[in-house]
């Protein structure tokens, strides 16, 4: 504290302490909040094709294509400790080979400054919905779940599941036409 640089050093160090304390207080003020929202999801135009899966074991596998409408209001979530959301749609089902299959078919980053009320109509899947066998045909319980990571300014990466989930029975016949 005796000369200029020493005082500047002490001041900077203490300023950083205060900023860290404010950030920690911000985290504590938001850690017990409820981050779940409900959604309105409709899945339609489901088609299943039986294709050869060259990538893995060269067997015939079920490839599903679909379109969905999604309506979610995320505006409630964006408090001062939320930077952005990573929203993704998962299809979950049980098959003879695996007790749990989770396929991410669509995702989107929702930033705070952008439009946070989502009303998407006729969205096609972003990633292939490909089974590792031929289990999708006639499947009576494929569940679509909306999950999102909450990316905070301070704290941990929270994973939240939206309250609604949609159970869809899959078609009983293969589609043989080309993908549109």
């Amino acid at each position: 504290m005796h000369n200029l640089l020493s005082r500047a050093n002490s001041l900077l160090a203490f300023t950083l302490w205060v900023m860290a304390a404010v950030t920690a207080a911000c985290f504590l003020s938001t850690v017990f909040l409820d981050y779940t929202v409900s959604n309105h999801l409709e899945v339609n135009d489901i088609k299943i094709r039986n294709v050869r899966d060259y990538a893995t074991d060269d067997k015939q596998a079920d490839l599903a294509t679909l379109a969905f409408n999604l309506k979610v209001d995320f505006s409630r979530l964006f408090n001062w400790n939320v930077k952005q959301l990573f929203v993704y749609l998962v299809a979950e089902y049980k098959s003879a080979e695996n007790a749990v299959n989770q396929v991410v078919i669509w995702d989107r980053i929702v930033e705070r400054a952008e439009r946070v009320v989502m009303d998407e109509i006729g969205v096609k899947t972003k990633y292939y919905f490909l089974d590792d066998g031929a289990h999708l045909l006639k499947h009576d319980n494929v569940t679509f779940v909306l999950r999102y990571n909450v990316i905070p300014n301070a704290g941990y990466l929270r994973l939240v599941q939206s309250t609604n989930q949609l159970v869809v029975p899959f078609p009983t016949t293969y589609t043989t036409t080309r993908r549109s």
């Binding site: 900023m19 911000c26 003020s29 964006f78 408090n79 001062w80 300014n153 301070a154």
Partner: peptide, 12 residues
């Protein structure tokens, strides 16, 4: 200030 405006940057 940050809590009332819901902006961490204002607190900083």
């Amino acid at each position: 200030v940050g809590y009332s405006t819901q902006q961490l940057s204002y607190a900083m």
